[in-house]
């Protein structure tokens, strides 16, 4: 069971795995080209750049042009990977991504690093907390947030096999590895990483490891909490969400992202339409980030295991009170 690895202390930055995986893929696929907007040292595309300089294009500090250029490369049959910080990939270049890439469904892979508030000291200007919301709003766009280094490697390998635009968010900080080495990512499929019957936590990115910690804490209180790694935010695994709602009767979502438009709302829309159960969204409560250490910010914005634990108890309580009311009727 993957959840058992929660006690492991192995920490890996997903951006590092991205850079290494991309450089390896460059050997087998001559069609892969990589673009960056003057952040190749941070996004780790510099590993590819060093190995295949003729297939690497540094576009300078011009994200809009980078996305358009990536579209043009894809229109001639290349598989462009375009990387920069998540705030710029999703924000600065949003309309280029929409018009030049997603509308014609061009085969561009946008791998955005420095997602969320764990960017840390750089502060709000560099912390993307809306990127998932604005990317999932675009038709044709697939949105993925891998939960650890193991999943990142598999995600990058798998998206090359898919012909169409994909947005992948990786992170600056080092995340605990929660998945087994032989894990294989399937686009559009969530994965149960811990079984339970009393409630379900659906999480993405770093929050998967926090969810597992919360579930371990709740187990001590006699609660069996299911944890799902929902790495594909779009298209979301409706079947798994409905199953979780039916079987556990209460859902908490966890995301290092605004609670508006992200994983929480994606899950809530399925739950509301298919099988309404009490829900709680753990995430950034419609506020901007700020400077600070990643760990401090996670505490400040309520994204720690204890915050998840509290939310789970809250939904279980609601769920039970609904059951009682139903019985009384």
């Amino acid at each position: 069971m993957a959840g058992e690895s929660v006690t492991m202390t192995k920490l890996i930055a997903t951006r590092d795995v991205y850079g290494e995986t991309l450089a390896r893929l460059g050997e087998s696929s001559q069609e892969i080209v990589v673009l960056d907007a003057d952040l190749s040292g941070s996004t780790k595309t510099n590993i590819f750049a060093k190995k295949f300089p003729e297939r690497f294009f540094n576009m300078g500090v011009s994200e809009a042009d980078m996305m358009g250029t990536a579209a043009g490369l894809a229109a001639v049959g290349k598989i462009p990977f375009a990387s920069t910080f998540a705030i710029f990939a999703s924000g600065r270049a949003w309309e280029q991504v929409r018009q030049s890439i997603a509308y014609p469904k061009l085969n561009v892979k946008i791998v955005a690093s420095h997602g969320g508030i764990t960017v840390g000291e750089d502060g709000a200007s560099h912390q993307a907390i809306e990127d998932i919301a604005i990317m999932r709003a675009i038709p044709n766009m697939t949105v993925i947030v891998p939960c650890d280094g193991v999943e990142t490697r598999s995600v990058i390998q798998e998206i090359v096999k898919y012909n169409g635009p994909v947005y992948v968010r990786v992170a600056r900080g080092k995340f605990p590895v929660v998945l087994p080495e032989d894990y294989k990512f399937t686009m559009g499929k969530g994965m149960v990483v811990r079984d339970g019957k009393d409630a379900t936590i659906i999480a993405m990115g770093l929050m998967v490891s926090h969810a597992l910690e919360a579930a371990a804490m709740l187990e001590k209180e006699g609660l069996q909490i299911q944890v799902i790694n929902m790495s594909t935010i779009k298209p979301i695994d409706r079947e798994l969400i409905v199953k979780a709602a039916k079987e556990t009767g209460a859902i908490v979502t966890c995301e290092e992202h605004s609670i508006i438009g992200g994983l929480g709302e994606a899950v809530a829309s399925v739950v509301a339409e298919e099988c309404p159960v009490p829900m709680k969204r753990v995430g950034i409560q419609d506020k901007f980030g700020q400077s600070g250490l990643a760990e401090e910010l996670l505490v400040h914005y309520g994204l720690m295991p204890k915050d998840i634990e509290k939310a789970v108890k809250n939904v279980i309580e609601k769920s039970q009170s609904i059951r009682v009311k139903t019985l009384l009727l």
């Binding site: 080209v33 043009g72 490369l73």
Partner: peptide, 10 residues
Amino acid sequence: LSMANGMALA
């Protein structure tokens, strides 16, 4: 023009 550039590069 950005798209044209991308095509020309490819």
